[in-house]
Design a protein around this nucleic acid. Structure first.
Lengths: 224, 224
DNA sequence: CGGAAAATTGAGTACTCTCAACCAGCGTGG
DNA sequence: CCACGCTGGTTGAGAGTACTCAATTTTCCG
């Protein structure tokens, strides 16, 4: 979203603290009250919830440049966990500073709101993904989404991506078991759609993967 | 969220048109640009998406008092459909009027933003529901959510609810087939948890249903 | 009363899960 | 330097939940 130079200056003036967290550390825990929001500078994070029976569902994955928990901004009590997937550098912005900024500067307020609305759109697509696609399509769709977002963030279009996710992560993001995720990934590899190992994802056949995953990037609302 | 009397007056002054739509009519279609947002005065609506293979996933259900498509406010192109589930009376509010109001009156802007954030929280819970719960739990959870929201909207606590959903709707909201939904509903009835017929849902054993559905109302962010 | 929509039932199928074992890579420490 | 242990990935076999297809009954309305 286009902001004026003046707005950008105001944004840069927000008081924030830079913090580094290790893999596995939490930004937010379900049930707690957050006093700050976190902007990911480097590293990956994810949101998740645990069910009563103890299984985990990953709700979203965040890459550098994303706000990882902007909901905390207005919601009193966090309804989900936010956890670092790798070591992360974060800008920690006090809620109050954001509230003031959004009130005093409507364009920035709208930009922040828009960011949460795009998150919301991604949540909706994930409901479709786990609700109505089979295992192959779910995983293919997830990979397409991540590749598209990483490309958009970096400004480059490359088939190779840094990919620090375990098969457990993929399983919990797609509502599958780790075992079935493993088998499904093998089938995607066997068909020459992807290469995935050693923390690197290579998309060998973009059109093929997109077709398998029933992927369209409209829901990402990129070219606003 | 508490708004001052002054704010409420400003809200009431928003230019809007009252419209009635019939069951099955669309408020918004995926891919289209919306020029207005809709507040549900009476009737039920739902959001949904269709996959490439033609199956439908319902993303949320809206009851009187809800904004059915507040995302359209800032997003250019709709990423999902919004459809009436019953005949509906709606307040149609032009996007521009909302933008102006939100900019000129920060408390109202925050209230609207908060509304979209709560929607977002519900989407997250639905991801968990379709991703990590079995058929019984999914349906029980959905029924708990609807009952809780209907009670909150009406201010009453009753076990009996107007329930205009078909089993197809329940199936598409939970990521199941209609046949399996039918069998699962029968099992919930057989255990004395619910009674459901003729457009009426009665919750016979609230604690039991909540336990089966792994339901907690935190994600609804009701008692703000 | 007739017709359409919704709900129900049956039988067979298949996708995904569970449980359990095993392998590979890698950092740590003896 | 190599053994050890941990994490993450892979494989196998069997079970089960949910799906498909198709027919039938019930309910809802005009």
């Amino acid at each position: 979203m286009a902001l004026s130079a003046q707005d950008l200056t105001a944004l840069a003036a927000v008081p924030c603290e830079i913090k580094t967290l290790q893999r596995g550390q939490y930004l937010t825990r379900e049930g707690e009250q957050a006093s700050a929001c976190h902007l990911l500078i480097s590293g990956f994070a994810h949101r998740h919830k645990l069910t009563g029976s103890g299984s985990r569902q990953i709700l979203s994955i965040h890459i550098p440049g994303d706000f990882a928990d902007l909901d905390n901004f207005l919601l009193e009590v966090a309804d989900h966990n936010v956890q670092c997937l790798t070591a992360c550098d974060l800008a920690v912005i006090p809620k109050k500073a954001l509230v003031d900024l959004a009130s005093s500067n409507p364009p920035i307020g709208r930009a922040l709101w828009l960011d949460t609305l795009v998150d919301s759109s991604v949540f909706r697509e994930w409901i479709v993904n786990v609700g109505r696609r089979d295992a192959r399509a779910r995983i293919a769709h997830l990979l397409c989404e991540l590749a598209t977002r990483l490309d958009a963030a970096s400004g480059a279009l490359t088939p190779v991506h840094h990919f620090p996710f375990t098969q457990d992560h993929i399983a919990d993001a797609t509502g599958l078991t780790a075992v079935h995720t493993n088998r499904t990934l093998q089938s995607l590899r066997k068909e020459g759609l992807i290469a995935l190992s050693g923390g690197k994802l290579t998309i060998l056949n973009w059109d093929g993967l997109r077709t398998v995953g029933d992927f369209s990037d409209r829901y990402l609302h990129h070219a606003a």
